[in-house]
Design a protein around this nucleic acid. Sequence first.
DNA 1: CTGAAAGCGCTTACAG
DNA 2: CTGAAAGCGCTTACAG
Lengths: 352, 352
Amino acid sequence: MRKGSPHRAPTESDVAKLAGVSQSAVSRAFTPGASVAEATREKILKAAQELGYQPNLMARSLATRQSNIVALAISHLENPFYAQVVRELSDRLRETGRHILLFSTPPDEQVDPALEGVLSYQVDAIVLTATMASLELALQCQKAGVPIVQINRESKIPGISTVRGQNRRAGELVADFLVAGGHKRFGFIGGTEHSGTSRIRQDGFAEKLKSHGFETQIAYGDYTFEDAAVAARSLLGSASPPDALFCASDYMAFAALDVAKREFGLKVPDQLSVVGFDDVPEAAHAAYELTTFSQPAGALVAEAIKIIDLMTEEPGRRAQRREVRGELIVRGSARIPETGIKKAGLRRTWDN
Amino acid sequence: MRKGSPHRAPTESDVAKLAGVSQSAVSRAFTPGASVAEATREKILKAAQELGYQPNLMARSLATRQSNIVALAISHLENPFYAQVVRELSDRLRETGRHILLFSTPPDEQVDPALEGVLSYQVDAIVLTATMASLELALQCQKAGVPIVQINRESKIPGISTVRGQNRRAGELVADFLVAGGHKRFGFIGGTEHSGTSRIRQDGFAEKLKSHGFETQIAYGDYTFEDAAVAARSLLGSASPPDALFCASDYMAFAALDVAKREFGLKVPDQLSVVGFDDVPEAAHAAYELTTFSQPAGALVAEAIKIIDLMTEEPGRRAQRREVRGELIVRGSARIPETGIKKAGLRRTWDN
DNA sequence: CTGAAAGCGCTTACAG
DNA sequence: CTGAAAGCGCTTACAG
């Protein structure tokens, strides 16, 4: 036996009729701060309850010109760091009744065509991470007054705000740390050659090493596990393989550890030290014990939301740039220098 | 210098004026299959282009009563399996121009209050994974004709479709596999005591073991890394610790391996075999080499979408239940029986 | 405090 | 093929 065609959902008018008031009264009853007599409000709420009324948010946003949804453009969800970003962003947004509309973009550094239509959804803001926005999109957003912020990506495009970790400092500190640990040959596995944030880590690392009198061998892993493995393979298989490796993300560092262990049979950290970037939860697991420079996803997201709210309040403002503090978390994947270690309980950090 | 207040986005009327046609003509020009003269359509497209017009999807969905967005309620995003589900779902949906509205729910098995408002968004469908829907929500959906499907969860609630892996078969096969491997004491780490899908794996496992004459020690890890570690600790620290462990998810198996290695110094698989469920990409990494029963996220998602499309076409249909095939992938985390192994290149599976 | 009315930006019969 | 008009379900001045 077939069910009849689905009933259409109850509307304000339906509630109004049942409660014996006008449709606008119903609207007011659901608008915080609107003027309704307590008695009528009760009557209305009761009627609404009875009908199972739920406001139609599409209609509301058409009328108010704001949707309470923010677009999140993201790729590399397989990297736990980005999974964390999604989770944190979603959680914080829900505190203010907002939700994420997800644009999972292709994993390369290309601008995603699907993203170009994002403004059609009347989103209140756009956050990008592990992807890029086109100049055109940035312009449209500016015109439409929609704030757009990138997390963990640099952007030369004006009008785009950015939140990032301490990329330069990470590179420099890791260099000092590895030198202090007595290493002699250094490798770096970056994201892509032109990825801004990877590049800054690389420059900090290589320049600092140079000041110590060392060269840096460089390879790129495209932020994927497979390509990072390829990069590690080429570095470790070279004529003069590094005895210390700094990777632009923990996820790529995991790949490097895999290759070092499985294919080269190297003992970590005796024969090879590996340092990552991000401090994802997995870095602390026994499988990796990864020494890494932290980039707390929660703090990044919190900053991003602050920026969004700021720009929404004052649409005229220029793009913001924020940096979130990180530190070098010392675990077992890299040789530990004699000095500079700080302890707090089980947690060890290093500073120069 | 402050920018002026943001211009409002161009509408069909704006385009119409510029193109010298009526607003409804513009609408038709953007509606596939609507009747417009080729000449006028060109004129309109040109005008739209010039203004940077993008249709307002909120207005459209108000008029058409469909939004092209599907709600995804999910928790445990830190588990790579669920991250994969998000990615797959997003990718498939985009092929038909749909997007995900994300509801990241709290990690416990509670019904999420935020989810109760999901129908306000006029979503075309709801998919749930690693969370539950309330009976009330299911009822509302049925009334509103919104299909609702759960991935990798059982549900006693009528009207909710489900897509799952071969839970029972996994349990039984793993039992046979471990017995064939010569193990004598067996442990199971489940999600929660009442999680349907974990329970079915457990029952298949324990009942099969019983038929072989073995008992099963059971503990629960709540699908989190930390709690799974606690569960592993209690099992491995018991008076007669298991020499084989089956975990209801790879992610919990990783935790068990961590504890076994770091806290008990056990050699895997010589002193302890560990088998997981899901076959997430990490399972193949050198850090784990996890033997596991596969539950392909891509296939699950594909089925879920088929169901959604089916139910959308024929709203009267009753809830669907689908099962997606998996197999026992043999790697290094469990002792390998003499017989039953099948090879295909580097890939090894086991069957009875 | 309350209702009637206009408007948000679309789609879709309905005439012509 | 095209335009005028009603309607989708809300919000929000505006009178009263």
